[in-house]
Design a protein around this nucleic acid. Structure first.
Lengths: 150, 150
DNA sequence: CTCTATTCATTGGTACGGCCAACATTGGCT
DNA sequence: AGCCAATGTTGGCCGTACCAATGAATAGAG
């Protein structure tokens, strides 16, 4: 057969490897579905933050979404071109821009959220509902643990 | 407080997000520890495949480790410089190179395997032993599922 | 046995995500 | 007034995953 495609045991055993591989598949799904919808990960993150917490400065958006300040700039430029957000100077602090989501932005976010839901289903296809929750809970604990250290 | 750093609910809920975040932390741990040891992910994968399955062509190595053929070239160049592998032409098929792990390569692999073990511990710190197995099993099923479709 | 398709190593380039350094502007604190 | 911190922005780096194209060489079909 294709013993040619067997993964070394040392790798198969390591959770870090499994995590990475799973993340690759996940990332591929997200990229495929999102690019088909004309978006990418950063866009969704920023739109979601704006929708949930309302207008904010770019720095705050970066903190909420885990996107670097410098990358926020580029992503917002792209979103602004598509009229999904608006950038206006903050009168109370002239260093800042106040970013606002537009109606078109909300619509796009809703649409993308639907896409995201499909993605989760494809990603977790082999797992039952309780197993999915189990996995989510375990992952959340890992993420929280490592996020705690800043 | 820093409601400034709250992640949007839509993201926190998505397993793809959690997977990605966990993978980032995992990747950071791997990178830190490995670069401290003078290696990187690709090196370990290739050495592990050579150790477990013996000498192989570059294409085969790529298939076994999930590394693109073109990236295998670069990684093997680096490993060859450090005398951890040897490249020799295949007399039976002059298109191929036969890659062999050296004694130094085996030593390095053992050392890196130790490093990897430490990494797993840091990564899974918040989980109990049975929880770690649970997570590993769930991840494995996801990875296998998506790897099946090539 | 020839012709075609496939495989191989290699080069070079793309995309995306995470990250860092620097800079000028502006605000807060004392 | 003076210093430190925060902000937006530019420009860059790295790692990982990819894809396209090339020339050499082999395998398979006829």
């Amino acid at each position: 057969m294709t013993a040619d495609e067997t993964t070394p045991t040392r790798l198969r055993q390591a959770p870090s490897w499994l995590l990475g591989q799973a993340s690759i598949h996940s990332h591929r799904l997200v990229t495929e579905h999102f690019t088909a919808a004309g978006a990418r990960g950063y866009h969704y993150r920023l739109l979601a933050a704006l929708q949930e917490f309302g207008p904010a400065s770019q720095a705050t958006l970066g903190r909420r979404t885990g996107v670097d300040r410098s990358d926020v700039v580029a992503a917002l430029n792209e979103l602004a071109e598509k009229k999904l957000i608006e950038r206006s100077p903050d009168p109370d602090d002239r260093r800042r821009n106040i970013i606002t989501i537009t109606t078109a932005g909300r619509d796009r976010l809703e649409h993308l959220t639907g896409v995201l839901t499909e993605i989760q289903d494809a990603l977790l296809a082999p797992l039952s509902a309780p197993e999915r929750e189990q996995l989510t809970a375990l992952l959340r604990r890992i993420v929280d643990h490592h996020a705690a250290g800043r």
